[in-house]
């Protein structure tokens, strides 16, 4: 039997998550730099966008699989962290939108939204885990 078949399922999933994170980063960096540096025709830009989005999907799928594979308590912590991250990001973007409309701050790049949500999710996972430790 090959080594990878004998590996603990949790370790295998972790390796898959690391690989999918790498795939996501590489496709993201390639696609964003390509879109910024080249004036490709719309069909090519559309294809690059598709590649960029496709690069994220394995990470999303594996993250969901990792959460579903946890025991009920850990799963609840992950869902709670996701809910808090969603709420904080929603309220944060609402506040930023109003501040921008009031011309108190400059335009906020939409790219910042999902990045902020990921960071907030990571922070809330840490905070929630500590609270229930």
């Amino acid at each position: 039997m090959a080594d990878h078949d004998r590996r603990d399922p949790a370790v295998r999933l972790l390796v898959q998550l690391i690989v999918s994170t790498g795939v996501w980063l590489v496709t993201y960096l390639f696609c964003t730099s390509r879109l910024a540096a080249h004036d490709d025709p719309p069909a090519v830009r559309g294809a690059i966008v598709a590649v960029g989005i496709a690069g994220l999907l394995p990470w999303v799928f594996l993250t969901a699989k990792a959460i579903r594979g946890q025991d009920e308590f850990t799963r609840q912590l992950r869902y709670l962290a996701l809910a808090i991250a969603f709420g904080v990001t929603a309220v944060g973007s609402f506040v930023v939108d109003f501040l921008h409309r009031a011309r108190l701050i400059g335009e906020w790049p939409i790219t910042g939204l999902w990045m902020a949500m990921l960071v907030i999710w990571a922070l809330t996972m840490f905070a929630v885990s500590r609270y229930y430790r």
């Binding site: 946890q70 025991d71 009920e72 308590f73 229930y132």
Partner: peptide, 26 residues
């Protein structure tokens, strides 16, 4: 105990301290 019922140590701790109510199956 966690291993015997298929949950983490943290889950048992949270149940014992009243921070988490287990599901009916658990």
């Amino acid at each position: 105990l966690g291993m015997r019922v298929g949950v983490s140590r943290q889950a048992i701790n949270a149940i014992e301290t009243g921070k988490y109510d287990p599901s009916l199956p658990l």
